[in-house]
Simulated scan of single mutants.
Amino acid sequence: MTEPHATRALRLGTRRSKLAMAQSGQVAEAVSQVTGRPVELVEITTYGDVSRAHLAQIGGTGVFVTALRDALVRGEVDFAVHSLKDLPTTQPEELVLAAVPVREDPRDVIVARDALKFTDLPRGARIGTGSPRRMAQLNAYARGHGLDIETVPIRGNVDTRIGYVRDGELDAVVLAAAGLNRIGRIDEVTDFLSVDTVLPAPGQGALAIECAADNAELIAALAELDDPFTRAAVTAERSLLAALEAGCSAPVGALADLLADGQIVKEMRLRGVVGTTDGTRTVQLSTTGPVPDTHDGAVALGRALATEMLTQGAAGLMGERAH
């Protein structure tokens, strides 16, 4: 006898990493509350999880997402949770981004030996990161402020990366505040990098909840978890990324934030940066306008800033272009 639809557990597709499981578990609880149905996690291994190559070498775009989306299309899971910064900027027609919940802290952070701050690291300090975006901005800041650092490409989960510092192989590593928050390890951070120093990846700190486009009932339920301000912000950031024709491993940073007067939100500011990984050349611009109240409005904000950046030479600074 088949289980009644109303009581059947919803199947949530997730990557197997500790961080993915933690954030998917939090979403599962929220979805269970709004639907009244149990939610079970279905672990899926993605190409990005099994490949040991650096993201820039394996293409970056979609390597953590494709297997989850394939499982959705095949009906093996009902919905999936992604780190939004991992999503390619093109949305498949058969899938819909049903919810973008309230964003976590979008900043990058340093975990350094001896509880050091970024600007207190010794001359020749080795800083590990797998992100060309972080390398570009850290090296640019160091050049402009007389710091002597070496950025070292690394891969691996949070334990592996922090382990490089604990073992003395590196002086510091750069991670996302949101990820450490979600796995309860934010107390290991020795310095929070201001977004004026390092702009985050487009969509960093936000989650994307995706399901089949023809599942109207589930789309309606998941929509209750959507935060319109977060969605507008990440839409503008990802529009900038798409208009620069850059993959998610390209050295592009972007952040849209709300400018408020007291409790009243007045405007949205979008900042974007692209640079060479050695930090010798960067293009960084910003634009401010009314808070977009439509998807198209947020897209237009991103495109407008990207156009300005391209006229300033941004295209020539990106090592990887989307194919």
Rank of each mutant, 00 (worst) to 15 (best):
L147M: 15
L147V: 06
D148Q: 05
I149N: 03
I149Y: 13
I149Q: 06
E150A: 14
E150W: 06
T151A: 05
T151G: 00
T151F: 02
T151W: 02
V152K: 00
P153Y: 02
P153L: 07
I154S: 04
I154Y: 04
R155F: 04
R155C: 03
R155L: 09
R155A: 13
R155S: 15
G156S: 01
G156F: 05
G156R: 09
G156Y: 02
G156W: 05
G156N: 00
N157H: 11
V158W: 00
V158Y: 02
V158G: 00
V158C: 00
D159Y: 09
D159L: 13
T160S: 14
T160V: 12
T160M: 13
R161P: 04
R161H: 05
I162M: 14
I162T: 08
G163R: 06
Y164V: 01
Y164H: 15
Y164S: 15
V165H: 08
V165Q: 08
V165R: 09
R166H: 13
R166I: 15
D167Y: 08
D167R: 14
G168T: 08
G168W: 11
G168P: 14
E169Y: 09
E169S: 07
E169D: 12
E169C: 00
E169I: 04
D171V: 04
A172F: 15
A172D: 12
A172I: 13
A172R: 12
A172K: 12
A172L: 11
V173A: 07
V173M: 07
V173F: 10
L175V: 10
A176F: 08
A176H: 15
A176G: 15
A176V: 10
A177Y: 14
A178G: 14
A178T: 13
A178C: 15
G179K: 06
G179N: 08
N181K: 13
R182C: 01
R182W: 09
R182N: 10
G184T: 04
R185W: 13
I186P: 00
I186M: 12
I186R: 14
I186W: 06
D187V: 04
D187R: 13
D187N: 12
D187F: 07
E188G: 10
T190C: 12
T190R: 11
T190S: 15
D191N: 11
L193K: 12
S194L: 01
S194K: 03
S194N: 05
V195C: 12
T197R: 15
V198H: 08
V198N: 04
V198Q: 10
L199N: 10
L199G: 12
L199R: 11
P200Q: 08
P200S: 02
A201V: 03
A201R: 10
P202Q: 07
P202C: 05
G203Y: 03
G203V: 05
Q204M: 08
G205H: 01
G205T: 02
A206R: 01
A206Y: 06
A206F: 02
L207R: 09
L207A: 08
A208F: 01
A208T: 01
I209H: 00
I209K: 02
I209Q: 05
E210A: 03
E210S: 05
E210I: 14
C211S: 10
C211W: 03
C211Q: 03
C211E: 02
A212D: 04
A212F: 00
A213L: 07
A213D: 04
D214M: 11
D214F: 11
